[in-house]
Structures are given as C-alpha cells and as structure tokens.
Design a protein around this nucleic acid. Structure first.
Lengths: 112, 112
DNA sequence: TTTAATGGTTTAAAATAACGAACGGAGATG
DNA sequence: CATCTCCGTTCGTTATTTTAAACCATTAAA
C-alpha cells in the first residue's frame, strides 16, 4: 500500500525542483546547457544570446536552477561556466516520487 | 543519443504538469485525494477541511490540476467527487522526459 | 414553492515572481 | 594606474498567481 506520509515528504523535497523545471525560460536555459556537447560549461553571455533574455533575468533563473541543484558552475577569472549537474540526486528523487504516485494510484483502486 | 528537439518538446508538453505539481497547496490536495482509499472520490467541502483552504482557492487549484490532466471528477446531483486520473499519460510523459534528460546528461560527451 | 446545500465563477485585492536599468566588484588588459 | 570585460546584485516596476467576498446556477429537501 502507498505510504502517504512518504509521498508527502517526497513532494515537499521535490517542490523546488518541480517549480524550477516548470518554467519555460528555465527549460530553454537547460536545453542550452544540454546542447553543450563539449561539456565545458556555458557562459552567461552565451545563455543571454541563446535565450534572448537579459543578463539579470538569466542570473535570476540561474540562481533558481542552482538552488534546485539542477545546475552548478565553475569560475575561471571573471568567467563563469555553467553546467547541468551529473549526480542527479534531485532527478532521482522526482523519479522515485512519480513511481510512488503511480503505485499509489494503481494499488488503491482494486475495485475498478 | 540525446535528441534535444525531442527533449525541448517534452519539456513544453510537461510544463503545465510540472507547474501544477510544484505548488505546495496542490500537493496537499493530491495527497488528500490519494488518501481516499475507497476511491469513491473526494468532495470539495472535504478538501477545504483537509487543506484549510477556502472554497474559491480549492476550486482554483482543482481547475489547474484538471487542466494538467492530473485529476478528474464525476457529479452526483450537486456534489462533485474528485479523484486522481488512472490513465497517467502525463506522468508517463514526465517519466519519459526525466529518463531522456538523464540519458542526455550521461551521454553528453560521447559520439553517437 | 420555498428553503437549504453544493460548488463554480467573477471581481478585486494581496502576494509572489519576473524583469530591466543602474550599479558594483573582481579579474584581465594595456 | 586606467580601462575594459564579465557577471552578480539591488531596486523599482510590471506581470502573474493566489486569494476572499460576493454572486449565480443547479439540485435536494421541506
């Protein structure tokens, strides 16, 4: 049977992640980061070009994505190189949540 | 192989779903719906009690959840019984998206 | 028919999020 | 040093979301 308190906790834990992922502009940033096949990181100026967003807007969204632990960056001098984090703890948590929700929905309804 | 245009489309398709799922109040509503073991549906008045939200607020969030195809309802007279949808197309789409993202992140540096 | 109950909607206000202009700091360059 | 680049931040504005009060339609009950 589904453990509701567990699902509740998983929801709360994935909340920032879901909000970060739901925004169209942030999705565009993530796609731009995924397009970095060389995996050397993408600079802020490149992201402003790729997404047609102002620098403060990019900075704003990057912070949200960082807080959600979806992305990270490394600095070289004044340049910051952003990349999607590889140890995807948050994504795994969300996958776990979705699995639990599906299970909860399918095991509760024995009388369909 | 990471197909970015596919991921982009999947992001867009799951956007409403992600937004709907990211809100704390709506999570509470979903948990309340999952707590309905008998699966006979939960009435609006029960949801207002369970979540401490006003009826217009509940109605507002229910509409968002309905638009995201997370929930549905059936009417009996003046009473509406809400429930989580069983055919979880949207959840499957999101699972597909997460899988693709993980794959894109782990195969970023390889030749196809 | 009259009265009560259920719940969606409209409107307006409050809270929150997103954005651009201007600024500031840190490092590179001359 | 002087100046430029890069980029985060602050502040005020705008846009969006969330909310409650009041209202309406539908149905059930008296």
């Amino acid at each position: 049977m589904a453990d509701l308190s567990k699902i509740k906790a998983e929801f709360a834990a994935s909340s920032n992640f879901l909000v970060a992922l739901g925004d169209e502009k942030r999705q565009a940033i993530l796609v731009a980061l995924m397009a970095d096949r060389a995996c050397q990181g993408v600079r802020v100026s490149e992201l402003t070009e790729a997404t047609q967003l102002s620098r403060p807007a990019i900075s704003h969204h990057l912070k949200i994505l960082r807080d959600a632990k979806l992305i990270d960056y490394r600095s070289e001098g004044t340049k910051n190189f952003y990349y999607i984090v590889h140890e995807t703890t948050e994504i795994n948590q969300l996958q776990q949540l979705l699995g639990d929700v599906v299970q909860a929905m399918t095991t509760e309804n024995q009388n369909d």
